[in-house]
Design a protein around this nucleic acid. Structure first.
Length: 217
DNA sequence: ACCGGGATGTTCT
DNA sequence: GAACATCCCGGTG
């Protein structure tokens, strides 16, 4: 039980997002997560890029073909962290959404580091500039030390020391929106959102894989 | 800046 | 055996 009510370095209290925040359609939750703070111990960062995965209705979702050992957390209650292993070496983190069984999730794709940067640099020795710390789904897991032992962690109680908190200081402009990145069933759905112009966004030009250009909103 | 390819091993077919 | 919600490095302009 750590950091259920984390404090900023300056002393102002942070408000942890309640369960009800996550208990909604991931398409609604995802853009609302922009600007919120991911907090673990002294480390905190503003969420600047997310993608929605719509459970069993979404061919690109890990939950599309039903529950397996890997994706079991997605089928549990909302407000927990779904952390999975991919490409033989990387971890990625999602916030579980929707009521249990619907298996919705929001992938955290990029963060803007706020505090505890020294620990992030230590966790990411290959990073050369600050925007390399959290500018990708696997990078941010490295920076925050998130791995399989955090799969299922409750973001509301802060049971394993990780929470997502409100961030009243940030005024949020209308986010940019485009297609999701790195999925093979290219669904055509624009279920990725990012903070316009933020240098930490993983691919500012949209889905620009292999020379493809995407229209931005 | 952009592009191509290798790393690396779990999960599911 | 193939796929994988990625990253990093080394090539070329």
């Amino acid at each position: 039980m750590i950091n259920a009510s984390p404090k900023r370095q300056g002393g102002s209290e942070l408000t942890v997002l309640p369960r009800a925040f996550y208990d909604r359609d991931p398409l609604v939750v995802a853009p609302e997560l922009l600007g919120k703070l991911l907090v673990r111990g002294r480390r905190s960062a503003r969420i600047v890029e997310v993608e929605a995965y719509r459970g069993s209705e979404d061919p690109a979702s890990h939950a599309y073909r039903g529950m397996t050992r890997r994706n079991a957390t997605m089928f549990g209650p909302p407000g927990h962290l779904y952390v999975y292993f991919t490409y033989g070496m990387h971890w990625c983190a999602n916030a579980v959404c929707w009521p249990a069984q619907r298996a919705g999730a929001v992938l955290l794709r990029a963060l803007a580091p706020q505090q505890g940067l020294d620990e992030m640099w230590e966790s990411r020795p290959r990073a050369r500039i600050e925007r390399d710390l959290c500018s990708g789904p696997a990078k941010l897991c490295q920076a925050f030390g998130l791995d399989g032992s955090f799969d299922g962690a409750d973001l509301v109680t802060g049971e394993r020391g990780v929470v997502i908190a409100d961030n009243a200081e940030v005024v949020l402009e209308a986010p940019s929106q485009g297609e999701r990145i790195g999925i093979t069933p290219a669904t055509g759905a624009a279920w990725r959102w990012w903070v316009s112009g933020d240098p930490n966004v993983s691919r500012p030009g949209g889905n620009a894989v292999r020379g493809l250009r995407r229209d931005e909103v």
